[in-house]
Structures are given as structure tokens and as C-alpha cells.
Design a protein around this nucleic acid. Sequence first.
DNA 1: ATGGCCAATATGATTGGA
Length: 260
Amino acid sequence: MRIATWNVNSIRQRLDHLTAWLAERQPDIVCLQEIKCQDDAFPRQAFEALGYNLAVHGQKTFNGVAILSKLKFDEVTPGLPGDDGDDHARFIEAAFSTSSGVLRVASLYLPNGNPAGTEKYSYKIKWMNRLSHYASERLKLEEPLILAGDYNVIPTPADVHNPAAWVNDALFLPQTREKFRALESLGLTDAIRAVSDDDKLYTFWDYQAGAFQKDHGIRIDHVLACPRMTDRLQAVEIFRKARALEKPSDHVPVIATFED
DNA sequence: ATGGCCAATATGATTGGA
């Protein structure tokens, strides 16, 4: 079972890159973020032609998440619980029947939160608290659970090229990192850190200032796994090459492979 | 040379991203 995440920064701009990558890598489940279109504008046929089922939670202009799956969806639930007034499309959960029982996978796009000290940052922190509450409820079920997406969190100094330049950034503030550790404390494992202690495992490079060429990246796209899925984790790959394509997303895909 | 980009929108300036 291979589960991927990719912030594509517009599904319509990235359609060719995404379909070529899917055809080559054939992940079973793909969590997408920043699709930046409404549900009816999502290019469904391109993915159905590759054998994927779709669950889309879109929004005009900004945000938007989706899940592609070779497995049939048993249930699809858009929206993160905990705030009925939150109209950002940043979360979608799907449930699947597998040989090892019900598997739940969520695609999430956690708020950026910049600039710090504004309502944008308080929204981020509230969103992280809601995510923790959701995760704790799901973990109580003791069923396979994967939370994958763009967390907009740099977990440690090893996950950024120049930590000093990020100390006041919403992605790296102590409170942000503390909330991320709170998720881990619930029993979720940052999959790549279960298989590697390397630095420079970046998943995002800014479009500006030649950041990719200088490898000025950050690691903010994460696959979090429950204990049972962590036991089955075999490998995690970051597809750095995707950032070198023509008209790339500023994020690259990550695939976690789990024993069937 | 210490700044350099990108996507969506009734669109050519603004907003958001990170």
C-alpha cells in the first residue's frame, strides 16, 4: 500500500505533471492540496482514465483538497470538525475497506499562519487544536489512520536550510512546533523520521530567489501514521525531481510505502 | 548585485502563498 501527498499549487496548472507521475509511480492513495478550483472544475476524467476514484473538496481561487484512490471509497467526509464557521476547504477524510480492516486517510492543508501575531496565526493554532482533537478521537478507534498533507510546519531545525532566518515565521515558531509535537504525542509518527535522520529532506522550495537551485528548502509536507501503520511502514520517498520540471509546483510529492 | 515568483481573478492590480 502506497500513500502519497502532494501540494500541487493548482490542479489545472499541474495536470500534466501529476498524471505523468501517477502513471509512473502508481500510488494507491494520493492526498492533494491547493487544488485551487471548485468541485465542478476538477479535471476528473484525467484521473479516472488512470484508474483512480476521486473525492474532491474544492473552493474557488484558494485552498481545496482532494483524495485520489485506486480503492473504492466507503465514506468521504469533507471538513475538519470543530468550527462550523470555518469555510476554508482544507480537510477531507476518506474511509476504505482493506484486508486489515477500515483504513482512514485524511488530506489536509494546514493554514500558513503568517504573519505571526495576527488573526491568521490564531486561526492556524485553533486549526491545529481542532486537528489534535480529531486525531485523538480517531486514534481511540484503534483502526489504521493516515493524516497526510501540507502541514505548514517545520518540525525541527534539521528541516530547514537556515533556521535562524525562520525563527519569527509562523511555520517555525515554538508554539507551532509544540502543536505539531502534540500530534506526535497522541501516537502519530512523522513517517520520514521513522526511516531517516538525514537533514535536507526538503519538500518545498520558494519560487523566489533561486531557492531550489541553492537548496534553500524546508520540510513541511508530512505523512503522519498511527501506531499500527507505523509498524507496517517500509519506506518514504521524496520526489525532489518534481521541483526541477518546467512550471513546477513549489512543493514536491512524498510517498510512504506500507506492508500489505 | 542580498533580490529574484507564481496562481487566480472579470484581468492588469490585488490577494495569498511560505
